[in-house]
Amino acid sequence: MKKILLLLLTILSISSYAQMPKSILPKPGSVSGKVVDVNSKEPLPYVNIIIKDAAKKVLTGGITDENGLFNVKNIPEGNSIVEIQFIGYKTVSKPITINRDN
């Protein structure tokens, strides 16, 4: 009985890794940059970077480091919107397009 149970668990674990669902596969794009204050030209740390699709649904996001730098990965192919949000500042939105250029 133990051998059958062990064999069954082994088969189930192997078959669960046979194909990865699309949601787990890596996305093709990334966005990076630096956020600075327009007047003082000083970098802004810990600013929220939000990536949304055309329907304004949040896809992914990130935050700037101490030097205002960010790198948001795993952005799906197509048109998206980058929103930069920081307390005390007006939210900035910019359209972007991610495509697979070989």
Rank of each mutant, 00 (worst) to 15 (best):
M1N: 09
K2H: 04
K3L: 13
K3V: 09
I4L: 15
I4K: 14
I4G: 09
L6N: 10
L7P: 02
L7I: 03
L7F: 08
T10V: 03
T10P: 00
I11N: 03
I11T: 14
I11V: 07
I14M: 15
I14C: 08
I14R: 06
S15L: 11
S15K: 07
S15T: 10
Y17T: 07
P21K: 15
P21N: 12
L25V: 11
P28G: 15
S32G: 08
G33L: 01
G33V: 00
K34R: 05
K34W: 00
V36R: 01
V38L: 05
N39E: 05
E42L: 09
P43I: 07
P45R: 14
Y46Q: 06
N48H: 09
N48R: 10
I49R: 01
I50C: 05
D53P: 04
D53C: 14
D53N: 15
D53T: 04
A55C: 03
K57R: 03
L59Q: 01
G62P: 00
D65T: 13
D65V: 04
D65L: 06
D65P: 03
N67Y: 08
F70G: 00
K73I: 04
K73T: 14
N74M: 05
P76A: 09
E77Y: 10
E77R: 05
G78E: 08
G78C: 12
N79A: 15
N79L: 05
S80M: 07
I81L: 13
I81H: 00
I81R: 00
V82M: 10
V82H: 00
E83P: 02
E83W: 05
E83R: 06
I84V: 15
I84L: 06
Q85T: 07
I87R: 14
K90P: 03
T91K: 01
V92N: 03
V92F: 02
V92Q: 10
V92C: 02
P95K: 05
I98T: 14
N99K: 08
N102Y: 02
